[in-house]
Amino acid sequence: MTRAASPPHRFDTPAGAITDVPGIEVGHFTHALRPTGCSVVLARAGAVAGVDVRGAAPGTRETELLAPSNTVEQVHAIVLAGGSAFGLDAAGGVMRWLDQRGIGIPVGPVRVPIVPAAVLFDLVLGDGRIRPDAGAGYAACEAASATPPQEGCVGAGAGAAVGKLFGLGRAMKGGIGTASVRVGDVTVGALVACNALGDVIDPDTGAVLAGARSEDGRSLLDTRRSLLAGITPKPMLAGANTSIGVVATDATITKAQCHRLAQAAHDGLARAVNPVHTVSDGDTFFALSTARVDAHPGMVVLATMAAEAVARATVRAVLAATGWRGGGLELPAARELRRS
């Protein structure tokens, strides 16, 4: 069962960025020796935070402290990284960078930076012994700014791939994307590294934008319809995929409300990825509030904004991606498949 590629999606349409939220900075580190890297979302003044994990195979650090009933209220950075569990080392470099600048929670005579992290699996592209480490996290902080971050195959999205249910040889290149939504005085932004097992779809039309390809590799195979038609997927290792991201807002909300916002972020992922939250994904979203705007339009509106920003950022992650070829593996990008 094959379907033609969907009509071109306008990537050049302004979508905003997570850095449209005051108090948020983003920096990428992309390894020069193979497609992997990390991305840091900085909140130097601290931000109230929450997290929600939906995938069955997550790789995370410092997520338990973000539970609404636990003591710590604020974080100072979030790290998204490739390299599977090895990539969690990048958070140590971010802590060192923040510590050198006196940023952290006062604990006796010292300040302790709070840096939760999540990772995705990209070890099959190139030499898997090369992974993001503490130096990579430090370099991402050095590169951070409030300008719109680069999208595509950079940072945590450098080694991402999508549409792997029928084998990696029929998958396509993933990446990292960003978007923002504004209602009144409030902004919600998202940063998403998309390394999904499933396809990425246009949430407005349902058309597949990137994902599993036909056996000849020339067209898209609509994974959802194929599975429902009884086509058997390839066996997948747990944790060999995963989409991870951050939503941020300038609205003043509580830690419990940040948890709800992180849950809403997954609604946006589910609109742009199908199938989603599988046993082979570790899908994780963090939510941040910089509290720069006193009022907010209510949690229903904020959750709607978060889901929309995540869906748009996920689409942009694959539309900004470039193809990868190496070691006998070819992962075309969405833009390349459309042209062919």
Rank of each mutant, 00 (worst) to 15 (best):
P113M: 03
P113W: 00
P113Y: 00
P113H: 04
I114V: 15
I114F: 00
I114M: 14
V115Q: 01
V115C: 02
V115D: 00
V115S: 00
P116H: 02
P116Q: 08
A117M: 09
A117T: 11
A117Q: 07
A117R: 08
A117V: 10
A118I: 00
A118N: 11
A118Y: 03
A118P: 13
V119N: 10
V119W: 02
V119S: 13
V119Q: 08
L120A: 08
L120Y: 06
L120S: 10
F121I: 06
F121H: 11
F121E: 04
F121Q: 08
F121S: 07
F121L: 09
F121P: 12
F121T: 06
D122M: 08
D122I: 01
L123H: 07
L123Y: 05
L123F: 03
L123I: 13
V124L: 14
V124P: 06
V124I: 10
L125V: 12
L125F: 07
L125A: 10
G126I: 03
G126Y: 01
G126C: 04
G126A: 01
G126Q: 07
G126D: 07
D127H: 02
D127S: 09
D127C: 05
D127I: 06
G128Y: 05
G128L: 07
G128H: 04
G128K: 05
R129F: 07
R129P: 03
R129I: 08
R129W: 05
R129T: 15
R129H: 13
I130W: 07
I130Y: 10
I130G: 12
I130N: 11
I130L: 15
I130R: 11
I130T: 10
R131T: 14
P132G: 05
P132E: 05
D133C: 08
D133M: 04
D133S: 09
D133Y: 09
D133W: 05
D133V: 00
A134I: 02
A134T: 03
G135M: 08
G135S: 14
G135Y: 02
G135K: 07
A136Q: 12
A136S: 15
A136N: 12
A136V: 06
G137C: 10
G137W: 07
G137D: 10
G137I: 12
Y138Q: 13
Y138R: 12
A139S: 14
A139T: 14
A139H: 06
A139V: 05
A139C: 04
A139N: 09
A140K: 04
A140W: 02
A140I: 10
C141P: 06
C141R: 01
C141D: 01
E142V: 13
E142G: 02
E142W: 00
E142K: 03
A143T: 11
A143I: 05
A143Y: 03
A143C: 07
A143V: 06
A143H: 13
A143F: 02
A144V: 09
S145T: 15
S145I: 09
S145D: 14
A146C: 11
A146D: 15
A146E: 15
A146S: 15
A146M: 02
A146G: 15
A146N: 15
